[in-house]
Every structure is written in C-alpha cells, then in structure tokens.
C-alpha cells in the first residue's frame, strides 16, 4: 500500500500499514535544522566571547564545528529513520499506530474511546499541504494521540470518518 515511499525498508512493515506522506521528512529536517541553528547561535556566542582566553582549551571554532556537524547529521538522518518506522492504519474497530526509532511503540486506539478530534497545521506544514490528526481519549497518558504527516485533505477525511465513532459517554 506504499509504492510512493522510495526508501521502503525491510524492517517493520507489516502489510497494509500506511506510511506517512514523504514530505514530512522535509518538514522534520527543517525543524531540526532550526533547532541546530538555535544551538549554534549559543555556541558561537560562547566561542566569540572566549576567543581570546588562552587557557589551553580547544582551538577556536572546533566546538562550533562539532555542533554544526552533529546538527546537520541529526537533521538529515533522524527524519528519515523516524519516517521509516512510522506506520498507521485505520481499521474497522481501531486506529493502529507504529512508531519510534529507539523506543518502538505499537499503539491501539479503539475507535469507541475517541472523545474528540483535532486537525492541526502549523506554518511549515501549511507550505507542504500537510497536517496532523490529534485523537483525544480519556486515557491519562494518551489524552492526545498524534498522527503527523498526513496530507491535509486526508487528515480531514480521517477526522470526518472517525467522528462518527464518538460516543456520548466514552468512559
């Protein structure tokens, strides 16, 4: 069900599970890149203010280089991995999710437990016509289960399908 995923992994894919929209990788990369930039500003500030301290220490701008390198690597690799392990499926009775690079999680959200639904879209996601579906349940640790990286029209369609399952008193 996923011919449009170029780097289809051998790893988790149970059949019939949907991957996210591939564009989500770009969004995640940009977000991580921005975080890197933020860290970089801090490090650069430190480097510049300590440029003329000569107490041994590291040669100038090595730290900046490390942070930059790590940041770029993470921004490139993590979104791909994250994308590779994200899978979801809407079934007759439940919404099924699989995700996680280091901590792999399988989640079953029974449709009858859904309390309400949100579709949200931030600035970046709007550029790519993506959105996320947020499923709220009464569960304490799962008051909001997030399904990111859906085409916005898919997210809205999912929401409209799911909202028929909302019961009056789901507790």
């Amino acid at each position: 069900m996923a011919p449009d995923a170029p780097d289809q992994p051998a790893a988790p894919a149970s059949p019939s599970l949907h991957p996210l929209d591939p564009a989500i990788r770009t969004i995640w990369s940009i977000k991580l890149g921005l975080l890197t930039l933020l860290a970089l500003i801090g490090v650069l500030f430190y480097e510049v203010t300590h440029l003329f301290d000569d107490e041994g220490g590291w040669p100038p701008f090595v730290l900046t280089g490390i942070v930059l390198g790590l940041g770029v690597a993470i921004s490139l690799v993590v979104p791909r991995l994250r994308y590779r392990y994200w899978r979801y499926d809407l079934r007759a009775e439940e919404l099924y999710l699989e995700r996680g690079i280091f901590n792999r999680v399988r989640t079953i959200v029974p449709l009858r437990r859904i309390q309400h639904l949100d579709v949200s879209q931030d600035l970046l996601e709007r550029e790519f016509d993506l959105g996320k579906l947020i499923v709220h349940t009464a569960g304490a640790r799962s008051s909001d289960v997030v399904l990111p990286g859906l085409r916005i029209e898919d997210a809205e369609r999912l929401r409209d399908t799911l909202k028929h399952y909302i019961l009056e008193d789901a507790v």
């Binding site: 007759a92 009858r112 949200s120 028929h164 399952y165 909302i166």
Partner: peptide, 19 residues
C-alpha cells in the same frame, strides 16, 4: 454490535473541532 452505524448525520456533530 460492533461499530456504531457510521453515517447518522444528525446530532453527532458535537465532538469534532475543525481547524
């Protein structure tokens, strides 16, 4: 009996919030 009958248009709209 399984999932509630999916499309029952009236009255069930209160749960969802659109963007």
């Amino acid at each position: 009996a399984g999932p509630p009958p999916p499309p029952s248009p009236a009255t069930q709209n209160n749960g969802s919030i659109s963007i």
